[in-house]
Write a protein that binds this DNA or RNA. Structure first.
Length: 820
RNA sequence: GCGAGGGUAGUCAAGUGGUCAAAGACGUCAGACUCAAAAUCUGAUCCUUAGUGGUUCGCCGGUUCAAAUCCGGUCCCUCGCACCA
């Protein structure tokens, strides 16, 4: 299948017939990028059609009509039409050749470049014809009138670029830094005695900036002048800094500016609100016209400059249709859309999405538009319903379905269930029936996966076309937006810029499983991922390590059951339930992190703590391999076979979580061991000693009493503890009589911990209340770990060995440590 | 400009009110193994300290007993904005 296959063309034709029947195809004028040589082009950053200018935006200038005495129009193109009230003069470049042209029924003077552009932009509106040419200098010194009828002089501006917009510029020195500096230049030149254009000196000198926008609560006269002075800008040639100044002023005035009194009926209105209204008004009154321009030069692949062309009767798909939008939004609300942010945005996006030009003229591949000869349906318009075409293309390709049978009635039947097959020739009836069955079997689409760039164009169109054409039960059920894999440095991978690595090569180099794991683990779907070769290799190494680890574990000598077995089973149960939950949520990263990083260290801990039961290990690694399977299937099967698993691991059902045999207390004990070991290592590191003996002291009974009382108190007052009250009430407890002096300090220390404690943590204190016995059972382990003798005393033990008096620092489940 | 997402330790990155000095990976350093290296293992990696302390999550301010997390402001980065799909 491709956009030029005959069968596909028939499908697209049907689709557009449907859109037309549903009154969703409309025509209206349109402005679009156009190469005089190649026809319409797409201006976008991936530079598919163009050689330069991918970042260009189409800007809509307002060409305000200033008039010479004889009525000839000087169209000053501006992005800030509201500033017309502050115009003090006009700028023309003295050395540039301007064209005098008849435009519609007026005479305009514009730069040569602008004249060429106008011919395309006026397409369908009237003729644009060259009448004469003249140097800018010819008009300098004379005057013209603003659209409001004020008379202003025409002055020389060497900063005027004939390539930008009309080459005719109006001057608003109070609000445009460029104008302000240029005006200064002209005035200074006169003062220094030079007057090459014979300007009226008094008149020029008397020009002062007209402030007409107030930004903020205080009026600032001549903001551009103030800013230029502050920035120390002196000359028209400092273009970069002038751009910067322009931006600052524009930003400020757009957001917080309002038009001042001299702005006639627009006085007092906010700039941000009035811009569009004002332009429409001016155009309606014949005081202005539109002028389109790119924000930067755009060059076609063929080398020609790209222009903006008016297409008088462009066909659109009317995605702004209120009924279609409403139905699509309602449907979207019932879909599974990921990530959540996009689920939230999709409604507003559908509202925002407007009519879309759907055909273009030129030598394009694609389907001819059925309502206009020689125009081709533009690719995005025809790509949105295509999954349904898969239902029939198969039969066309294998020859069961004949091309000429694929008429509108055929598609109506297959996709909409319309019409019957009576009287149809046997073969034809059979294949049509099968297409319909396939369609009913497969549709609707469960999910459409696409990159983040599709959020605002492709997905809305995809949804709306389904809603417009298909039966409600066949509308898509889900969308999934993913971000990108980029080159290192974050640049987009592209064929032209490089960075692309063909998948077959990459697979050969890193292996399929490593690639899969890399993608799953290295980032979440809604974040760009930088492709890094080294990192992929790390995943391969990680897989090898897991393979070896399992090998090692299963070849260890069986040491029979131990208390660690219960821990390992419980821990693996916890891991399995975490992984299951993550997978259900689609959090591949989290899931793979547990499987490939956390579980290996759990198993290491089991061994380190003396676990050696082969039967437990066999069972647990079996379960682990089942978890490895979805991410690295080849590795999983390999290990599965090695450990004597039956059949393929991929055909086994997902393991079931054994909650019955989960031992919370064994989990808590190991938490305790890990924390204590960390403390021991910390002390060892800080003191920088190789310990010869270690003594641990468990906490006094009375400290437990205090802790337990505090926990009770916090339960009784929605979590909070008032230390003062706590101390007071503890002082009254009989058992604590001997420790009265120590209570306030301990309460201060413990109460903030207790307030923060979660139920699980309280559980820990309850389960390990027999700390002394637990700890005594652990001395062998700690002694091996630390490489020296380890003894345990209670702080309460009268005969304890306590050379440094450390024992008083002990707290419940936080033994004090002595080391030497 | 409009809309959206983001700024967390050397790097990448997890983390939406208390279990956070903050997962994990990478890098770096030290130790083990080795004739040696690689690989692998073990530990350390904000500051301080015989562990319970201090200062951190772009910047400024606010809410709260409690903020990386909530609110307001501000700076910076990325994406989309309609004929590329």
């Amino acid at each position: 299948m491709s956009t030029i296959s005959d069968g596909y063309n028939r499908f697209i034709t049907w689709q557009f017939h449907k859109l037309h029947q549903r009154k969703l195809l409309i025509t209206k004028p349109h402005h679009a990028p156009f190469c005089p040589n190649c026809g319409p082009v797409a201006v976008d950053s991936s530079m598919t059609d163009i050689a330069q200018g991918g970042g260009a935006e189409t800007q809509e200038f307002t060409a305000l009509k200033f008039r010479l005495k004889d009525g000839t129009v000087l169209p000053a193109a501006t992005l800030r039409p509201e500033t017309v009230f502050g115009v003090t003069n006009m700028w023309l470049h003295p050395d540039v050749e301007y064209v005098k042209a008849s435009v519609l029924d007026e005479t305009w003077i514009v730069s040569r470049e602008a004249f060429e552009k106008l011919r395309y932009q006026m397409d369908g509106r009237g003729e644009v014809k060259e009448l004469d040419t003249l140097k800018g200098a010819r008009l300098i010194g004379s005057t013209c009138t603003t659209p409001m009828g004020r008379e202003v002089p025409i002055l020389p501006g060497t900063f005027v670029d004939p390539k930008v917009a009309t080459g005719v510029v109006m001057s608003v020195p109070a609000h445009a830094p460029f104008d302000w500096v240029a005006l200064k230049d002209v005035q200074n030149e006169l003062s220094s005695g030079k007057n090459p254009y014979g300007l009226d000196e008094n008149m020029v000198r008397s020009i002062v900036p007209i402030t007409m926008i107030q930004a903020g609560s205080e009026l600032v006269e001549d903001p551009a002048g103030i800013l230029c002075t502050r920035m120390g800008i002196e000359s028209q040639s400092e273009a970069d800094r002038l751009d910067e100044a322009t931006k600052i002023i524009y930003k400020n005035e757009f957001h917080s500016g309002a038009l001042m009194d001299l702005c006639q009926e627009y006085s007092g209105l906010k700039v941000s609100k009035i811009k569009e209204t004002l332009r429409v008004d001016f155009i309606e009154k014949g005081l202005a016209d539109l002028f389109f321009e790119f924000s930067e030069p755009v060059i076609c692949r063929c080398g020609n400059g790209v222009v903006i062309k008016r297409i008088p009767d462009q066909w659109f798909i009317s995605y702004s249709d209120p009924d279609l939008t409403r139905r699509t939004k309602e449907h979207a609300a019932t879909m599974d859309i990921y990530p959540e942010e996009y689920m939230r945005d999709i409604g507003p996006v559908l509202d925002w999405f407007g009519d879309r030009a759907c055909i273009r003229k030129g030598s394009w591949l694609g389907t001819e538009f059925p309502y206009k000869k020689d125009w081709i349906i533009e690719p995005i318009s025809d790509s949105t319903l295509y999954p349904s075409y898969y239902m029939v293309s198969k039969y066309l390709n294998e020859g069961t379905l004949e091309l000429e049978w694929m008429d509108d009635a055929f598609f109506d039947h297959v996709f909409l269930g319309k019409g019957d097959l009576e009287g149809m020739e046997e073969r034809r009836r059979e294949v049509t029936r099968r297409c319909r069955e396939d369609f009913l079997y497969w549709y609707p689409l469960d999910i459409n996966l696409g990159g983040k760039e599709h959020k605002t164009v492709h997905f809305p169109v995809f949804l709306m076309n389904h809603v417009a054409i298909m039966e409600p039960e066949h509308w898509p059920r889900g969308l999934f937006v993913h971000w990108w894999v980029t080159m290192s440095g974050g640049d987009k991978i592209s064929k032209t810029k490089g960075g692309a690595e063909p998948i077959p090569d990459a697979i050969r180099e890193y292996g399929v499983d490593a690639m899969r794991l890399y993608y799953c683990h290295v980032g979440s779907a809604n974040m760009d991922v930088e492709w890094q070769k080294d990192t992929v290799s790390h995943y391969r190494a990680r897989m090898r390590r897991i393979y070896e680890q399992i090998d090692d574990l299963l070849s260890m000598e069986d040491g029979g059951p131990s208390s660690m077995d219960s821990w390992l089973r419980s821990m693996m149960g916890v891991r399995l339930s975490e992984v299951t939950e993550m997978l259900e949520q689609g959090s591949l990263r989290e899931a793979s992190n547990i499987i490939y990083f956390t579980i290996p260290s759990d198993l290491k801990w089991y061994i380190r703590r003396g676990g050696r039961s082969q039967s437990t290990l066999r069972e647990m690694t079996g379960m682990w391999v089942q978890m490895l399977q979805p991410f690295t299937p080849h590795l999983a099967e390999e290990i599965w076979e090695r450990i004597g698993g039956k059949g393929l691991v991929s055909t086994h059902p997902w393991p079931i979580i054994d909650r019955e045999n989960t031992s919370i207390s064994s989990l808590k004990v190991e938490e305790y061991v890990i924390k204590l070991l960390e403390d021991l290592n910390r002390v060892k590191k800080i003191t920088d000693m190789e310990p010869k003996r270690i003594i641990l002291y468990t906490s006094s009974e009375w400290k437990w009493t205090v802790l337990e009382k505090l926990m009770d108190m916090s339960d009784g007052s929605d979590g909070r503890i008032n230390p003062g009250d706590a101390i007071k009430s503890l002082m009254g407890v009989e058992d604590l009589g001997a420790y009265r002096k120590l209570i306030p300090k301990l309460v201060g220390r413990l109460s903030k911990d207790v307030v923060k404690m979660r139920p699980e943590e309280r559980e820990r204190y309850r389960l390990l209340r027999d700390e002394m016995e637990r700890l005594q059972g652990l001395t062998t382990f700690f002694s091996t770990e630390m490489g020296c003798e380890v003894r345990v005393f209670s702080q309460d033990d009268e005969g304890k060995d306590d050379p440094m008096g450390k024992s008083k620092a002990s707290l419940p489940l936080k033994p004090a440590i002595f080391m030497e």
